[in-house]
């Protein structure tokens, strides 16, 4: 068989794959569709924490006392909310709400006042919990299927990888003022989704964003409230609370 013939075979196979792939992708459900040309800034950049060995974890914190000074955002919010009663949410962690979380996964929190490359301040779990107690909106940057398995109560699914992100951002713009304090989280560790979402929200005009750096695994490890929702993809934060 001649080489030309082999290359023709390759071209035919590639052509069939592209044609079928395009057709299939155009007609699949919106939840599983991605744009043909994506926009992922930092596609070559490796987060420092994944290139270097993580620092040793700090000793287990006392749950009654905050382990770090609160950031100015939290302090502002606490002052604003002083005198009002925070909504209490059920506090049980459902057993199967989240994936199994390894101890190694939970990383130490950010240094006080640390700021992500995108210019968005990073907060630790105690600060995130303060925001939670004060009804700040939480945005879950993980995939919707992980969100459905378990998320911070009232959090909205905002996966940067899903095609309807722009629509969800539009909804967010309509629902909340742009200067309202919001907390974004994903799975901590090497997860960059919360930083990517923060960048997009910043571009959309939101000015008071905070990245909960350690993410959902740390939240679960601290036994803070977790909500589980079935089919929450279509109806974002309307999940059932676990008791």
């Amino acid at each position: 068989m001649k080489n030309g013939c082999i290359f023709t075979e390759c071209a035919v196979i590639l052509g069939v794959a592209v044609a079928v792939g395009t057709g299939f992708h155009l007609f699949r459900s919106e939840k599983l569709r991605i744009k043909f040309i994506g926009h992922y800034p930092g596609a070559f950049e490796i987060a420092k924490k994944s290139a270097e060995q993580p620092p040793p974890p700090p000793p287990p914190p006392d749950p009654n006392t905050p382990e770090e000074p609160l950031s100015p955002g939290v302090v502002d919010m606490l002052e604003k909310k002083r005198g009002t009663q925070a909504t209490t949410v059920s506090i049980d962690v459902s057993k199967d709400a989240a994936e199994p979380i390894s101890v190694e996964k939970v990383e130490p929190g950010p240094a006080p006042g640390s700021v992500a490359k995108s210019g968005v301040p990073e907060i630790g779990v105690e600060e995130a919990y303060e925001f939670f107690k004060n009804d700040a909106p939480f945005l879950d940057a993980r995939r919707t299927r992980f969100y459905q398995q378990g998320h911070i109560p009232r959090a909205k699914p905002m996966s940067v990888w899903e095609a309807d992100l722009d629509k969800r951002i539009d909804d967010l713009i309509k629902e909340f003022p742009s200067d309202l304090a919001m907390v974004i989280y994903c799975t901590g560790g090497d997860c960059e989704d919360s930083h990517m979402l923060a960048g997009k929200l910043k571009t959309a005009g939101f000015t008071n964003l905070h990245i909960f750096l350690e993410g959902f695994p740390k939240w679960v490890a601290k036994k803070y409230p977790v909500e589980k929702s079935e089919g929450a993809g279509d109806e974002p934060a309307g999940g059932e609370e676990s008791h």
């Binding site: 196979i13 794959a17 992708h25 991605i34 043909f36 994506g38 926009h39």
Partner: peptide, 14 residues
């Protein structure tokens, strides 16, 4: 970044 989705869509079909 602009090629990631194209790879994700077409490589499996190839």
């Amino acid at each position: 970044g602009s090629l990631i989705n194209l790879i994700a869509i077409y490589l499996p079909w190839i």
